[in-house]
Amino acid sequence: MKKILTLSMLICLSGPVFAEPSSLVAYDRETRALIRDGNVDNGQKLAKSAKCKKCHSMNGIAEDSDDPNIAGMSATYIFKQLKDYKDETRSEKSMVKAVKKLSDQDISDLSAYYATQQLSAAAHATESVPVLVHYGDRKRMVRACNSCHGQNGEGGMYDMPALNGQSKGYFVATMEEFKEEDRTNDIYWRMRDIAKELSEDEIEELANYYSAVDPDGDEDDEDEDEDDEDEDKE
């Protein structure tokens, strides 16, 4: 017992305790190589067997507006999000559970597969472009959306996701999560700082601009059939 107490004290006194980083993913040489070598075919198999397709479909376009469209997102972005779920630095329960048993190679393969799917077509629901998209708001230190997410919302480097064609419900919910600090895996508060400055109307306006057309109109029958088969098996 004494030994345990002494050891615990030593651990406590051994140095300053730092809070958990917002993400454990670093795009160092090894990680970049792992992502680059992702196997698309294996990723496709995993997308079926790991049940990714139940929410995200095989083509990466979600059928429910609350689920994200992940088609055509960069492999680096998808990889980071899946790793964050695995490390529990992003805490959506269903996703944490879904990726628990996946290896880093599996995650890389899945990222490679969904990155090859067609990015949701540009489908701006509104014609007018919100001022924040191109100009931001210097007074509030809100950077323009397109400075990180691409001139046409097609996504930027590494962990900057595409916004174009995103599900509206997911877009709004994600911005609210950043605003309320329910989601904190944006390294160095990059999105939290911005979301906190935005009003609900501004978030709605941006969601309308970037969101895809309601997917109910063009469901993929094949995917639907495969989903039904999966549910029957369960």
Binding site: F18, A19, P21, S22, S23, L24, D28, R29, I187, Y188
Partner: peptide, 17 residues
């Protein structure tokens, strides 16, 4: 300093900025 792992370093971790 390793820039790719900056947020995982002690000095440049979020809570030390």
């Amino acid at each position: 300093i390793d820039s790719t792992r900056l947020h995982l370093s002690e000095e440049f971790s979020e809570d030390n900025l």
